[in-house]
């Protein structure tokens, strides 16, 4: 996939990927971006310009909580974790995504 295509990430997709990345445990901002890249096998590279606004938006929506911690190399960093509603939202968005993906796949097969 070309780099330009990666930037054209749907907003809903970005939210879903962030929630998924955090489902395994808390991460700081860059950590989220790495994890998304890792779990999508390098298909999606989330730029800081999209990542940080999304993290703050999800936090205000109540799906993430954040706390300041020391990172692995002794820097203060803001760590994000899923809340209960966040986990619930992940489940909801996952099934929604599967439904859409299935429908589109079917549509493309015909």
């Amino acid at each position: 996939m070309a780099k330009g295509d990666r930037a054209a990430l749907l907003q809903g997709t970005l939210d879903l990927l962030i929630l998924k990345a955090l489902s395994a445990g808390e991460l700081h901002g860059l950590g989220v971006s790495r994890r998304v890249e890792q779990i999508t096998g390098g298909t999606f590279q989330v730029q800081p310009g999209s990542l940080f606004p999304a993290l703050h938006r999800l936090e205000e929506a109540g799906w993430l909580t954040s706390a300041w911690r020391s990172s692995e190399n002794n820097r203060r960093a803001k760590y994000y974790a899923l809340t209960r509603t966040g986990r619930h939202q992940l489940g909801h968005e996952t099934s929604e995504w599967n439904r859409i993906a299935l429908a589109i796949a079917r549509a493309l097969e015909t």
Binding site: H28, G29, L30, P48, F52, H56, E60, A61, G62, S71, N73, R75, R76, A77, K78
Partner: peptide, 30 residues
């Protein structure tokens, strides 16, 4: 929640902005 966010963002504007700044600079430094 909306009201709480609004109150926080407007009343503690300076702090919220400082935290965003710190978070981003921290990430850049990392």
């Amino acid at each position: 929640r909306t009201l709480r966010n609004l109150a926080r963002n407007l009343l503690l504007r300076g702090r919220v902005r400082r935290e965003i700044d710190e978070e981003l600079r921290g990430a850049l430094a990392a």
